[in-house]
Design a binder for these strands. Sequence first.
DNA 1: CAGTGGTCTAGACCACTCC
DNA 2: GAGTGGTCTAGACCACTGC
Lengths: 247, 247
Amino acid sequence: MRTMEAAPDPRLPRYEQIREHLRQRIFAGEWEPGSALPAETELAKQYEVALGTMRKAIELMAEDGLIERLHGKGTFVRGELQQASMFRFFRFRRDADDAAPVVPRTVIHELRETTLDNRVAERLALGRARRGIFILRWRELPDGPGLLERIWLPYQPFRELLKLRRDEVPDLLYPFYRSRCGVVIARASETIRFATLRREEAALMGLSRGAPVAVIERTAFSLTGEPVEFRITQGDAEHFHYNVEIK
Amino acid sequence: MRTMEAAPDPRLPRYEQIREHLRQRIFAGEWEPGSALPAETELAKQYEVALGTMRKAIELMAEDGLIERLHGKGTFVRGELQQASMFRFFRFRRDADDAAPVVPRTVIHELRETTLDNRVAERLALGRARRGIFILRWRELPDGPGLLERIWLPYQPFRELLKLRRDEVPDLLYPFYRSRCGVVIARASETIRFATLRREEAALMGLSRGAPVAVIERTAFSLTGEPVEFRITQGDAEHFHYNVEIK
DNA sequence: CAGTGGTCTAGACCACTCC
DNA sequence: GAGTGGTCTAGACCACTGC
């Protein structure tokens, strides 16, 4: 896959040009996720700008969440998307300060190759390449509501998944995508809506037909900005809650 | 009402101290919402810091949404909270690019003095002063779903509302709060959840009892950071949709 | 044109982390 | 102590707005 290396617009401020160039260097794999960028002074020398200008460029990338600055240690390329768990949308009995990152129990119902339909292909910005992978799984936390999750992926570069038995599929997919498929999930766009259950779904979720559910549709994007995963997650609407801060 | 003027912590960076001080000057009403602050060079002189430090402080306030910078014109105190319409949660037939700010048709069902119950008093951080105002209204957009809205306010400083006849209550409340009650709404916290309609509500909304609705609870805060309004808005769950970007 | 915010420089010194 | 990012200075010049 060839990456378009758009030449930065010279009319833009220097720090914007540098930001764009640095982004592309990260996408090109010059630094692994989790590893450190050169020091700010070093980068300023590379780009022949004052330290302040360099810091401005780095600051913007940090705001984008692409990198992370640690005082006294260095500037690091971000790894996986944080706080991507669907469980953040649902309320539990033991909500409290259990900072312990609980991993949900997962049951894979289906894992197979499939032909992606129009809706999914569109979300994944695929052209004629409709070969894909489908996963249907059930996830639950102790004391928590369960979630039914349908996931669609393009065949490439995810075909590694098809080599797994259903009980070998890891609970957390994004680390698998990174280590085995070479795809780092950098951001995602989610849409929340409500619906009622159809009979097949109701059976899988242990709820009655017509029961209200919250539906979260997520399109996940790689570091290079391409949509690479589409999933639909649904859970009991009674347990759904979500907070928004507006300014 | 006396405002606590917390002395800025001298261990904090200079720009943080300035930001806090400038916030308090704005809260104290030194500049009206919509009017311009002194120029950056002037403020830098006032605080006896370099321009860069001053700009950093101003930049942070702009990120908070408290002020707005306009290149070549000046730095302005923000007025009302933007994009606070509950209709942003619901889907319409004519969603499109109708940038025209449509004002919903509003019917006031109730407008009266009331005694605030525990739940509301807690949200509004009231002590024993339980005297308050209650509004029940119905809002709808052409071609759009309707929303049922219950609003609770402390008696002070909102008692001006009680002088209005029901048909005199303006469609947009926040401008009224500002001009007639001296309260500028600066931010809000919203929680989204799901429920089914009780009979009384169903009648008001023209839906059947038990119909699924999306419920949005909003606590709105003034410029000084105090919670001053609590409202519960509900609309047909079928039309609800909300987008979240995660990084 | 004067006045505003935006970009950029070339330094100095501070605070934190790790060896 | 060496190396990192964070704070701060005192300037210069650019780009945009309005009269």
